[in-house]
Computed example of a mutant assay.
Amino acid sequence: MKIKHLTFLASTMLLISCSGTISTAKKEYQITKTAALKSAWNFNPNEWRLQNDTLTGNGGPMHWGVIESKKKLPKNYEIDFKVNIVKESLFEVMLHIDQENYIRTYLYTIDQNIVIGRGAYNKNSDEYSKRGGPTLFKKPMQLENNKWYAVKIRVSNNQLYFTVNNQTFLECSIEKSNLNQQGKLGFITNGHAKISQLTIKTIP
């Protein structure tokens, strides 16, 4: 019984340790508790909150709501979640955030596309020129407000795969596209968005 207790305690310490990446001893990371969210992510509590296992973000056209992990993504990983763009037009996954630069993977209801692009974000400025960035790859997809979409992002050997609803698919070489090869994870909304069933998993 004592051995089981020590094993559980050791596993728990590994899960909350200050390792270099957001992968864990179980090779999988999920947000289920507010305490874990506060310890592992940088965010404004007026913009992002966790309730009933659903992460809710609020931003606006002039001030995007951003949440950013404190740890780096693993070299090879898979991110799965469901998203609902309740209000406005943009929901964006920020990949490989390094200082102000990152890879943009996003759903855009105005253009009716899913997109991979080169992104920049300055935390201290809401100037339009200091956020967003050029589109590199896009594919048409019918997108609606207040509807849930299943998103899967996979990075393996510097190849990025971005899929929505197992139907619409984009792929690119991170190295050939001159994109950040490592960094942190984040999410952006310019309105009101909900994320559920978020899982970040290390893959071989």
Results as ranks from 00 to 15, higher is better:
119 G>K: 03
115 V>M: 09
108 Y>D: 01
124 N>K: 07
114 I>Q: 08
127 E>P: 00
112 Q>C: 05
102 Y>S: 10
126 D>P: 06
129 S>D: 00
93 V>I: 12
102 Y>T: 02
97 I>T: 10
117 G>A: 07
104 R>D: 02
90 L>G: 02
101 N>Q: 05
112 Q>S: 02
112 Q>W: 11
110 I>T: 01
105 T>I: 08
86 V>E: 08
128 Y>A: 06
110 I>Y: 08
94 M>Y: 13
101 N>P: 00
101 N>V: 15
129 S>G: 02
120 A>E: 14
98 D>R: 10
103 I>H: 06
111 D>L: 14
89 S>L: 03
124 N>D: 04
125 S>N: 05
107 L>E: 00
108 Y>F: 14
105 T>A: 15
97 I>H: 07
134 P>A: 06
88 E>F: 13
95 L>Y: 08
130 K>G: 07
99 Q>F: 01
134 P>T: 10
122 N>H: 09
109 T>S: 09
88 E>T: 09
98 D>Y: 10
136 L>A: 12
123 K>L: 13
94 M>G: 04
132 G>V: 13
109 T>W: 03
129 S>W: 14
132 G>T: 06
117 G>C: 10
105 T>Q: 00
109 T>H: 01
110 I>R: 07
105 T>E: 03
134 P>L: 04
118 R>K: 14
130 K>I: 14
99 Q>H: 13
132 G>P: 12
96 H>V: 07
99 Q>A: 15
100 E>T: 15
88 E>G: 11
101 N>G: 03
136 L>D: 03
113 N>W: 08
96 H>L: 08
135 T>C: 06
86 V>S: 04
114 I>L: 10
101 N>I: 13
86 V>N: 05
110 I>G: 05
91 F>G: 09
113 N>R: 11
112 Q>V: 08
96 H>P: 02
110 I>H: 11
118 R>N: 07
97 I>Y: 03
136 L>E: 05
87 K>D: 15
92 E>K: 14
120 A>R: 14
86 V>H: 05
123 K>I: 12
125 S>T: 15
114 I>A: 10
119 G>P: 02
128 Y>Q: 07
116 I>D: 01
112 Q>I: 05
88 E>Y: 11
88 E>S: 14
97 I>W: 02
129 S>P: 06
131 R>P: 01
125 S>W: 11
116 I>H: 10
90 L>S: 12
129 S>L: 08
113 N>H: 08
92 E>T: 11
125 S>K: 08
87 K>R: 12
109 T>V: 09
135 T>N: 15
103 I>G: 10
113 N>M: 04
127 E>R: 05
95 L>T: 04
90 L>P: 01
100 E>H: 12
113 N>S: 00
123 K>N: 13
105 T>L: 11
99 Q>M: 13
120 A>N: 12
123 K>D: 07
128 Y>S: 03
97 I>F: 07
105 T>R: 01
109 T>I: 04
115 V>C: 09
104 R>W: 00
93 V>A: 11
132 G>E: 04
92 E>P: 04
120 A>G: 09
127 E>L: 12
136 L>M: 14
